[in-house]
Simulated scan of single mutants.
Amino acid sequence: MTAEPAAVLAETDALELLGRGRIDIEGRLVDASNTTLRAEITLDGVTRRCVYKPVRGERPLWDFPDGTLAGREVSAYLVSRATGWGLVPPTILRDGPLGPGALQLWIDEPAEVGSLIGFVPAFDVPEGWFAVASARDDDGDAYALAHADDPRLARLAVFDAVINNADRKGGHVLYPASGDVHGVDHGVSFHVENKLRTVLWGWTGKPLPAEATDVLARLGEQLDGPLGEALDEHLTITEVRQVGRRVKRLMRACRFPEPPQEWPAIPWPPI
């Protein structure tokens, strides 16, 4: 049986499917640095695709020595769910064919989908876009790495600042037919030191969206309760504490953060 393009699952149904469904591996996504598998998952006649990242396939990272990348993927989903913005597809930690790992619902993108992030001619940046970096192609022509001034991306930028995402590439942003924006690949997030690397620097120093104030306040409350308890299962005590501190700093500043000065602020490759 193959996964068919079907109606979007409700979040509770997706979590049930991920938690109890039968996993059949289809193949490996070869561009990923860690073992990342595409699979079909089936429960009670419902079949969808998912991404399975087994812990045993993770490459050790010197600057992320604690916990697992899979646990950070799950933590990103938990924070996303707490914001109410639905930025990260349903993600759980469960045992699979290659042992414990992160299981995330696959997000299909329409063939004609247009990205809100990319390289554009330096002298022809679209109206309503921010240029965030300069580049040249092999012929020496000037380009700009740019992204749209879009409220959905602004939400993602706030979210990345909260989880301290060290790898927000343009290719880690998905555009499903629903019109939403999803972020994926959060395995190198939640470090205790500032490691924010992203292509979404267009709002640097600008005021946060008005809605972010209530969302951050709600996050702070939940970090002292059920969200904090859930994150404790996947992150260290210090990492969870630092999430709360980043939330407080964002609320106090009411502005998007500035790029770090100690290391490159944009991941490589950026797309």
Rank of each mutant, 00 (worst) to 15 (best):
I117G: 00
M251V: 05
V158A: 06
R241G: 10
D224Q: 14
D24I: 08
K195Y: 11
A82G: 09
D31I: 03
F159K: 14
Y143T: 02
D31Q: 12
V162N: 08
T91K: 05
N194K: 03
D149C: 10
P270C: 01
Q104E: 05
V173G: 01
I271M: 13
K248E: 15
T42D: 11
P60H: 02
A10S: 08
T47C: 10
V240H: 09
E73G: 04
A210I: 09
A76V: 08
A212Y: 04
A142S: 15
L174V: 09
A102G: 04
A32G: 10
E16H: 01
L196V: 12
F64K: 03
D63R: 05
I266P: 15
P65G: 08
T238K: 14
V192K: 09
L15A: 03
K53T: 11
G21T: 12
R218C: 11
A157W: 00
E221I: 11
L250F: 00
T12W: 13
E233H: 13
G21C: 12
R136W: 07
L105T: 00
P5W: 02
A230S: 11
A177L: 03
D95Y: 00
A3Y: 07
G67D: 05
I266Y: 08
P54E: 04
G187E: 07
L61E: 12
L103H: 04
P126T: 04
V113E: 10
V247G: 06
A217L: 14
A144C: 03
E127M: 07
D141E: 13
D185E: 06
